[in-house]
Design a protein around this nucleic acid. Structure first.
Lengths: 111, 111
DNA sequence: CAGCACACCTTGACATCCTAGGCATCCCTT
DNA sequence: AAGGGATGCCTAGGATGTCAAGGTGTGCTG
């Protein structure tokens, strides 16, 4: 089983992406994947095996809440909504991301 | 043992930082930590327990070579030099990083 | 009715990172 | 002279997050 080294997105960024996607309005898991894919201009592809554990994790931390509903096509799906705590977590992660991007930019511009 | 959630830098960025630091000239492990710290404007702090395994990994992949030398203060230290393969790996990782930063920026600007 | 998209979930493997140690040398201060 | 701190290397163990690969079921469409 040759493990191709993957790492599409870096560890730690997924929570931020999910929170961002959900912050635009309640959404179910499958839709979150699509929304992130679309928002990123088809650059980011979140795997289901990454998403569902992440959603569980995030819900445990109180950043989102979930409830089963029926979507517009008549299928049942678990809709996630962002909480107040989730919104501030999103802010914090975005700020942290900005700091990291800045720091790495500094390293890269060094001669 | 309460594990404080850390994750100073994201997984996957360390190799790039090390390669960048070494690309400016041969350097030993301890110095790499200091150089990254300094280049980042004191924002990034690489732990020794992260660095040395990473260096071993990177050397195995042929991206750096090492040899014991004596530095200007008379201490023996293992100096790492970047290889041709390491240089192109650095380029690839920087390009990949740019793509990720761009993709996440797109997600974040979505309304 | 076969196949695909939708929608959920779990398991196991894996890489990477951090904490927390250990070891040795040199220099500075007390 | 002793002690501590900085320099310099390393390892072991555990925590985490992601991915590949599987499984389940429903509804639509050709």
């Amino acid at each position: 089983m040759k493990r191709e080294k993957k790492a599409d997105l870096l560890q730690g960024t997924l929570d931020m992406l999910i929170l961002k996607a959900v912050s635009l309005g309640p959404l179910h898991g499958y839709g979150i994947i699509q929304r992130i894919h679309q928002m990123s201009g088809e650059m980011l592809q979140v795997e289901q095996g990454s998403l569902y554990p992440a959603l569980y994790r995030i819900e445990q931390k109180g950043w989102v809440t979930s409830q089963w509903e029926v979507n517009e096509t008549g299928r049942r799906a678990k809709f996630y909504s962002i909480t107040r705590a989730g919104a501030s977590q999103l802010e914090a992660e975005e700020a942290s991301w900005d700091r990291l991007v800045l720091a790495i930019a500094k390293v890269r511009q060094a001669t």
